[in-house]
């Protein structure tokens, strides 16, 4: 019975970790301009961090061939030729970590030309690690419960 209750508690905790809303960030949104250099097959800088609500302007500078930049989750993109800086402006209104990637075929490793933008915090990573922790703890009551049931079945 205790095992069953602890499993229920762990499950409830899991739901809380997965879905509980986080307090709204207190930092006032601002406008940011980020210059990103693109080459075959990397961005520089390749990891960006902005706050929730920021108006982000990406200046994409291609330094070898035509590259693009597509932001997962925001579904916005821009394309830049060398010598022609292109800008992309969007409001970072969804928190979390998103990949951005080249959307103009630029050579063999093009599908893996990837960067990462973190808006506020990488919530999902923290929630997932929390879930993984609860999951590992949960295995103890779960397996004793299963063993018990098996024993009972055998006894019958």
């Amino acid at each position: 019975m205790i095992r069953f209750i602890s499993l229920v508690v762990l499950f409830a905790a899991g739901l809380a970790v997965a879905f509980a809303p986080l307090p709204a960030p207190s930092i006032a949104p601002q406008a940011r301009t980020l210059r990103i250099d693109a080459r075959q097959f990397a961005y520089s800088p390749s990891e960006l961090k902005v706050n929730l609500g920021d108006t982000v302007t990406v200046q994409l500078v291609s330094t070898d061939v035509v590259h693009g930049l597509y932001v997962d989750g925001y579904d916005v993109s821009v394309e830049a030729d060398p010598g022609q800086t292109a800008t992309l402006t969007f409001v970072a209104d969804r928190s979390g970590s998103f990949r951005f990637r080249c959307n103009v075929t630029c050579g063999a490793m093009h599908p893996f030309m990837i960067g990462k933008i973190t808006v506020e915090k990488n919530d999902l990573l923290f929630r997932s690690v929390g879930l993984a922790t609860l999951a590992v703890i949960g295995v103890f009551p779960l397996s004793s419960l299963l063993v018990e049931r098996k024993d009972r079945a055998l006894a019958k």
Partner: peptide, 19 residues
């Protein structure tokens, strides 16, 4: 200029283009 020159001569003409 943007299409043909800026990659070497720079978008602002300063001779500091990406190449």
């Amino acid at each position: 200029y943007a299409q043909n020159c800026a990659a070497c001569h720079g978008e602002n003409g300063a001779g500091n283009g990406v190449f």
